[in-house]
């Protein structure tokens, strides 16, 4: 139904040559072509952040991002963050502080937090809250998510 195109995508450090629909979103390609199901569909309109991935280091809603646009860019999904089964400091802090309940917003939250701390290793509370502007959570009231990001930042700076 949809016109097909060939693309080369770099996802989590691996190259994939794919034939995809021209209008397919990056989210659809990740989940339904590559079976990288850690990235979630929450709203389809870019309002909840459950589908966030890093594109060249920036957190982007993959549900409103055409997969063809990702060519020549480096895409990192939640599956690509931890190496050799070890959690990243952000992931570890989310687990320990109780920032995870239903977990459906978690991959997007972790992606956003990871991008923030790479850009700004010493964020204020206000900067953390501002970074979460495009991530919704219905379980935690964000309290422990903010605590988790603060803890991860301290640890990454070697302070905790």
């Amino acid at each position: 139904m949809d016109e097909r195109v060939e693309v080369t995508l770099n996802i989590n450090g691996e190259e994939y040559q794919l034939e995809i629909g021209k209008r397919w979103t990056l989210l659809y390609v990740l989940r339904d072509v590559l079976n990288l199901t850690g990235t979630k569909y929450g709203c389809g309109t870019g309002d909840c952040g459950a589908c966030k991935v890093l594109i060249d280091g920036e957190p982007v809603n993959s549900c409103t991002y055409l997969a063809t646009r990702a060519q020549g860019k480096e895409v990192i999904t939640i599956e690509g963050l931890s190496k050799d089964g070890r959690l990243t400091p952000v992931q570890q802090a989310f687990v320990e502080t109780g920032a995870i309940q239903c977990g459906f917003c978690t991959p997007g939250m972790v992606i956003t937090a990871t991008a923030l701390l790479r850009r700004n290793p010493n964020p204020t509370r206000e900067e953390i809250i501002a970074a979460l502007d495009n991530n919704l959570c219905r379980c935690t009231g964000y309290v422990k998510i903010i605590e988790a990001i603060e803890l991860a930042a301290r640890r990454m700076r070697g302070e905790a």
């Binding site: 999904t77 931890s82 687990v95 109780g98 972790v110």
Partner: peptide, 15 residues
């Protein structure tokens, strides 16, 4: 912590 937390934080939890 929630016992599913590690699965969820790595994107491996299956919904």
């Amino acid at each position: 912590p929630n016992r599913e937390a590690v699965l969820k934080v790595t994107g491996k939890a299956v919904y």
